[in-house]
Amino acid sequence: MASALLQIQDLKVEYHTEDGIVTAVDNLSLDLNKGETLGLVGETGAGKTTSALAVMRLVPAPPGKVISGRVLFDGQDLSTLKAEEMRLIRGNRISMIFQDPMTSLNPVMTVGRQIEEAVELHQKMDNKTAKARAGEMLKLVGIPAARAADYPHEFSGGMRQRVGIAMALSCNPELLIADEPTTALDVTIQAQVLELMKRLRTEFGTSMIIITHDLGIVAEACDKVAIMYAGAVVEYGTVESVFNRPLHPYTRGLFGSIPNIAEDVERLTPIPGLMPDPTDLPYGCRFHPRCPMAREICSTQTPAISTPEDGRTVACMIYEGLVPGYDTEEKA
């Protein structure tokens, strides 16, 4: 197996707001190997975006604050780097695609110039080489190089997102973090973007973290998946194992909630209740108020991370033998 490119260890991020302290990410540990694509899945407030921002050291402070934890990139602890050193990595060796292609581009700069800026800064290219590079990158994402002279408003949403991807890839990053890269796009345009991302992975061996709420995208584009709930990873494993045998009650609940176009289900089985208040998270297991399997112990004790099989983790007391589990039948 390839070696770890990114290691997140015991990351904890808080937002200190007027309404109280919000623990956005708690005790997060994840590894990403070279050439691998990890899907980070969860609903609003699960801590997906904050985790990504913490890797990039872009958590807005204040109100955000990284309380503890380390992020090792290629063996180097990013939290110990000086701001200037971090700037050499950000946008260069690690880059990010943002959710909203409407707001993540500079509206008063041509798209070509925006890409040139990145390569001039990071790759120390002169303007002429940078221009050529920008044209090359646009072509790679299916935009004619001549359009480098156009401004963002002259592009459609799908094309703007492709510009964002071109910019993110312009410095050949080793790690690409894509935060809901297709959420703002129509499904046929989403298909174009996913296809492009898959091609990049095979051609350049880029490692990726794809943040999404869409399990379909994970099944299609990822190798590993981490399911997050209320700031913590509740289940982690290969896409194959998690999709074929979801272990955590929340993961099972998610699968029961989505209408699947390939299956006929009369009625969905939603997860009861609401996302917890982030300033007042439930004690014990954070999912217990909504969990159909919960027992008393779930409200008093925090579940440890179990490893039911190699490369698979789950944070649920069923797998510690403390709570009765599902019957022998497979997959809810």
């Binding site: 499904v187 046929t188 298909a191 379909g216 994970v218 099944a219 194959e240 699968f255 176009i261």
Partner: peptide
């Protein structure tokens, strides 16, 4: 047909032929 083929299906190992539409509406 293109619209249907573009939907990612949340199942492992789902292999379908995808019709990629060129261009925008």
């Amino acid at each position: 047909q293109a619209l249907l083929s573009a939907i990612p299906i949340p199942r492992y190992g789902e292999k379908r032929e995808r019709i990629i539409l060129e261009g925008d509406v």
